[in-house]
Design a protein around this nucleic acid. Structure first.
Lengths: 198, 198
DNA sequence: CAAAATAGAATGAATGTTCATTCTTGTCAA
DNA sequence: TTGACAAGAATGAACATTCATTCTATTTTG
């Protein structure tokens, strides 16, 4: 079951096994290159069970997407609760995303390295989901409270998170020799220098 | 024919018509959601012609990919030839990519907003292609000549181009109200501040 | 005239889904 | 306590559809 911060129940119920198997296959091969019979085999369940729980292939992907976005949302909430300053919130969030890219690779990949609109008909733009909205809200607060320079919030958001997302994708593509925490303070330094109000 | 800086021949030969039709359909719907008969109809050619010229569906995508990467490569070369300083090269490249995102949307989308490894078996990582290698080479020169701070080249590359790529994707997803040139100087300002050696 | 290009119907493998059947669990009545 | 029954979960073979590709016939070109 694709949790970031929780332990999966044991024994794992059928629906969780389907989601875990599907996540691994979708990330490894791309949604469209995975047949539902492959998910079935990897999860060790019957074809009919998949339809019973999720209504079909897209239903699996939709459930995965919502579930992982909820996990991300909780992560953003915890960061906001733990730190007072918008910069610290951004920095901590990037550190945690980098850490999870190393430890929960497929979960991060499913949200940050996929074209959801190619296989989801409902709400396929991750950037319109709660966690991303909250991330932009942190940026706006940073501008309002004078910690960040006052530029367009989309620009500021791209400046803060664009480089981090890029490194995550490069790591997932196998381009980087080191785990992401190796690069993290360097990246945070350039971001901070670029967006902090002098 | 998906050129950035050239005018297409008239009358357009069959292979160019196939590539143009496929580009539009692949970008609009995602490679896997487009059937070869749809490409056929949009290009106004026969099914057999497609196999004659490109060997199959993947052959079309591969030809598009190579062709557009060559266009990008030429763009990078022209920028390097026109400007002496690495920062000016980066800034000009980002400006031009933003401009082309507005005027040649599908060409930019095919390279910067797609998961090539889901439909190409040959060289599917754009970041390993010539234009991207040259972009990183500009970064390395910036570090060597002392214009940029001396951090890991992958980090610097993500800091310079990560935010720009993110804004391109947001624009392609319809998130931004304004055309990209509206945001460009703001973004360049934060990037430059973050990576310039004091 | 022969070779290459073009057209489009036919092909069959692959895929997502359905559906009849079986299994499991809980409830109720004797 | 046990057996019958009902409901829902689980199964997997069969099905319908779609798709990329092949093949055959025709047209065009050198």
């Amino acid at each position: 079951m694709p949790y970031l911060r929780t332990c999966p129940p044991q024994p794992e119920p059928i629906d969780c096994r389907i989601l875990t198997a599907a996540l691994d296959l979708f990330v490894e091969n791309g949604y469209h290159n995975v047949s539902i019979h492959e998910v079935q085999k990897r999860a060790g369940v019957s074809i009919g069970s998949i339809y019973n729980y999720f209504g079909g292939k897209e239903g699996i992907a939709q459930a995965l997407y919502k579930h992982i976005l909820k996990e991300l949302d909780d992560l953003v909430d915890s960061v906001v609760a733990e730190y007072a300053s918008p910069w610290q919130q951004c920095a901590s969030l990037i550190r945690q995303l980098f850490g999870y890219t190393e430890t929960h690779r497929n979960i991060i990949a499913f949200i940050f390295h996929a074209k959801h609109n190619e296989f989801l008909s409902e709400d396929p733009l991750a950037t319109l989901s709660q966690p991303f909205i909250k991330m932009r809200s942190i940026i706006k607060k940073g501008i309002e409270c004078g910690e960040f320079i006052a530029l367009d919030p989309w620009v500021m958001s791209a400046s803060v998170f664009g480089g981090a997302i890029r490194l995550i994708q490069l790591r997932l593509d196998g381009m980087l020799d080191q785990p992401l925490p190796y690069y993290e303070e360097m990246l945070l330094k350039t971001i901070e220098t670029g967006i902090r109000k002098p």
